[in-house]
C-alpha cells in the first residue's frame, strides 16, 4: 500500500500529459474533457498523446502479463518529456504507478517504466495537492455521496481528496454511506467471471448510497460508475452517477449555461 507519506508532490508544472484511460475515452469522454478543462483553468497546458490506448490493466489483472506488456510497450513511448502524467482514474493510475515497475522489472524497459510510474498522478489528487485548486460553486443545492474506488483509496491513497474537493462547494452536501470503504463489486473482469457475487456487492453498494439520502453519487473511477449506475438503471433505482471531475466542472459553470 502506498501511504501518503511516500508521495512527494511536484511543484505545479507548466505542462502535463493527460492519460484518459480507455473507459473515459470510449464511454465517458465528458469526464476526460472536464479534467482537461480543470487543468487548463489552473493555467496548465495539457498534452493529450493521440497514440494512447489502454494502460494494460484488463490483461494484467487477468493474469495475461505478456499481453499486458505488449499493449503497454507503445504506451511507454508517449511521455518523452519529464512532465507529470495525470490520469482520471485511481485504477489505471494505480496500474501505471504501482504495477508498471513490477511488470517490466528486469527488462530493457525497466527504467522507463519506473520513471513513468513516479510521474503518474491521479487527477483529483493532482488538482488538490499540486494545483491547490479553488472551486467556486455556481450550482443548486444538492446531496451527493462519494464512492472512492478501491484502487484510488488503497493504491493511490487519495481517499480524502474527493471529500475535500466537494467540501469546497458551498451548495453541495456530502452524505456518507454505510461502509464507504467497501468495494462496489466491479473488479474489471471479475464482474463477468463471477457475475453473481459482483451483483450482490453492487446491490449493497447502490442501496447504501440511496440509504444515505444521496440524489446522485460521484466517483473517481468510471469502472465503478458503470457498475453502480448501470445496476441502478437496470433496477430502476433513482441513483445517477457521475465522474467526480465532470461533477466539479459542472458546478463551476454559471447556471445559465457555459458548461462544455
Amino acid at each position: 500500500m502506498m501511504s501518503d507519506a511516500l508521495k512527494v508532490y511536484p511543484a505545479k508544472p507548466e505542462k502535463v500529459y493527460f492519460y484518459a484511460t480507455c473507459l473515459v475515452d470510449l464511454f465517458f469522454p465528458d469526464a476526460g474533457l472536464a479534467g482537461v478543462q480543470l487543468l487548463e483553468r489552473e493555467g496548465i497546458e495539457v498534452i493529450f498523446p493521440q497514440n494512447q490506448t489502454c494502460c494494460g490493466q484488463p490483461a494484467y489483472s487477468s493474469g495475461y502479463n505478456d499481453q499486458a506488456r505488449e499493449v503497454i510497450l507503445p504506451q511507454l513511448e508517449l511521455f518523452p518529456e519529464d512532465y507529470p502524467i495525470v490520469v482520471p482514474s485511481g485504477s489505471c493510475g494505480g496500474m501505471m504507478r504501482k504495477h508498471y515497475p513490477e511488470l517490466f522489472a528486469g527488462t530493457p524497459q525497466q527504467a522507463r517504466a519506473e520513471a513513468i510510474a513516479a510521474r503518474t498522478w491521479e487527477l483529483t489528487d493532482f488538482l488538490l495537492q499540486v494545483c491547490q485548486i479553488k472551486l467556486e460553486d455556481q450550482g443548486q443545492p444538492v446531496k451527493v455521496a462519494m464512492h472512492t474506488s478501491c484502487s484510488a483509496r488503497r493504491e493511490m491513497g487519495v481517499a480524502e481528496v474527493g471529500p475535500k474537493l466537494l467540501g469546497q462547494l458551498a451548495q453541495v452536501e456530502l452524505v456518507e454511506q454505510a461502509r464507504p470503504a467497501e468495494c462496489c463489486g466491479f473488479g474489471g473482469t471479475f464482474a463477468v467471471r463471477h457475475p453473481e457475487i459482483s451483483a450482490a456487492m453492487v446491490q449493497d453498494k447502490a442501496q447504501a448510497l440511496l440509504d444515505a439520502g444521496a440524489e446522485q453519487f460521484v466517483t473517481t473511477d468510471c469502472g465503478c460508475m458503470m457498475n453502480i449506475a448501470g445496476y441502478a438503471e437496470k433496477q430502476g433505482l433513482p441513483l445517477k452517477g457521475q465522474h467526480i471531475v465532470s461533477f466539479l466542472w459542472d458546478r463551476l459553470q454559471a447556471k445559465d449555461g457555459g458548461a462544455a
Binding site: 484518459a20 473515459v24 475515452d25 470510449l26 464511454f27 465517458f28 469522454p29 465528458d30 476526460g32 474533457l33 482537461v36 493529450f48 493521440q50 494512447q52 464482474a191 463477468v192 467471471r193 457475475p195 459482483s198 451483483a199 453492487v202 446491490q203 458503470m226 457498475n227 448501470g230 445496476y231 438503471e233 437496470k234
Partner: peptide, 23 residues
Amino acid sequence: LGAWTRYRSAPKPAAKTLHQLMQ
C-alpha cells in the same frame, strides 16, 4: 452483454471519443 447485463444496463459508447474531441 453476457453476464454484465444480467444485472446492469449496457454502457453506451460516446458519440465521439475523447481522442476525437481532443483532436
